[in-house]
């Protein structure tokens, strides 16, 4: 599995961990992962600690996740990105749309 989903005990947080390559090939799994919970009711945490490559389709997927989570009212956090991933997020101004930590 390129994408692993885990729910917190209280069910309020859905953590999606993506494997090495966050690209178009994982789009279906990624979508299923966030669609497992109803948007607007849970917090999403995207764990990129194991990811070392990310292309523009991953950015598109993250934006769709944000829309699913309720757009501007969503709470989506991107955690543990590597240096290159962090640069990509920064260059795309994702630091204004997501909580990156």
């Amino acid at each position: 599995m390129a994408v692993r989903v885990s729910n917190s005990n209280d069910g309020g947080t859905v953590t999606i961990a993506v494997s090495e390559r966050f690209d178009f090939n994982v789009h279906r799994e990624f979508r299923e992962a966030y669609r497992s919970a109803e948007g607007g009711k849970v917090k999403y945490v995207v764990d990129l600690s194991g990811t070392d490559y990310m292309d523009s389709s991953a950015l598109g997927m993250l934006l769709l996740l944000r829309e699913h989570g309720g757009g501007d009212t969503s709470t989506v956090a991107i955690v543990n990105p590597g240096e290159n991933i962090r640069k990509i997020l920064k260059i795309s101004n994702f630091d204004r749309l997501f909580e990156i930590r």
Partner: peptide
């Protein structure tokens, strides 16, 4: 970059 991201988002959609 914005355009590319936007296009990617649309494409994934």
């Amino acid at each position: 970059v914005d355009q590319v991201v936007d296009m990617s988002k649309g494409s994934v959609e």
